[in-house]
């Protein structure tokens, strides 16, 4: 029963909260939708913390796609042995994990010690940073310490297929039963973090300006055109 709750009900509820929350915020509270940079208030710490953290997160995302979304059979078809995969995952993933943790720790120290940054930070700002730190720390611990000291855990046979099964709406929660505790905590914390996204500054994840490189540099808007477009 607890298996059904954590590996079926909980993921769907959290993701639903995320999607509905995002739609609500986009529709009614778009004025608050921004990447709330504090670079204006402080630059020196940000210079190291922010790029470390953000680039780390981007690489970590790619790593998760490689581990969770792409099936193990794909690697086998390419002739990549399990050992070679884990070698890459532990070193690459470990480095990226350390980048994220180091970056987020620098940003957290900055948030606590720099007066204007701390005073402007809200509960949701601290929550977002601490939640990301927790998820990143468990992930990095798994990658670097658990995988090298306890067992090179093959999550591509359990967590990966379970994760994909969520998208088919046929959750194979039984796969998660024997997953090591630290992995379980990481997954649950991550889904809890997803649910919080619409209510924190993390919404800016969804506004990557992908159109910028292709749009014309100068933008004109017109009252009459605005009406003609029916917006």
């Amino acid at each position: 029963m607890t298996g059904i709750f954590w590996w079926v009900i909980f993921p769907y509820i959290t993701v639903t909260i995320m999607i509905l929350g995002l739609l609500y915020r986009y529709a009614f509270r778009q004025l608050t939708w921004a990447a709330p940079s504090t670079e204006f208030l402080e630059k020196k710490w940000l210079r190291f913390g922010s790029p470390l953290f953000h680039w780390g997160i981007i690489f970590a995302f790619i790593g998760h796609v490689m581990g969770m979304v792409i099936p193990i059979e794909f690697y086998h078809a390419l002739g990549i042995s399990d050992h070679a995969y884990h070698f890459g995952a532990i070193y690459g993933g470990g480095l990226v994990g350390l980048m994220v943790v180091a970056g987020v720790v620098i940003l957290l120290i900055r948030k606590i010690t720099i007066d204007p940054v701390r005073i402007k930070a809200t509960f949701s700002d601290f929550f977002a940073v601490l939640a990301v730190l927790f998820v990143a720390a468990t992930g990095t611990y798994m990658t670097i310490i658990y995988n090298t000291t306890v067992v090179e855990y093959e999550y591509r046979l359990t967590i990966g297929p379970w994760f994909r099964s969520l998208f088919m709406f046929q959750p194979r929660y039984d796969l998660m039963e024997n997953v090591p505790m630290i992995f379980k905590i990481h997954v649950i914390a991550a889904f809890a973090l997803f649910a919080s996204i619409p209510f924190t500054k993390l919404v800016h994840i969804f506004s990557i300006p992908i159109k910028y490189p292709t749009r014309p540099p100068q933008q004109y808007r017109s009252r009459s055109n605005y009406k003609r477009q029916g917006l």
């Binding site: 540099p217 004109y220 017109s222």
Partner: peptide, 15 residues
Amino acid sequence: CVASCPSGALYKRDE
């Protein structure tokens, strides 16, 4: 400034 805006939020009014 308009050309620098990644979101296309800055614009020049036609009128």
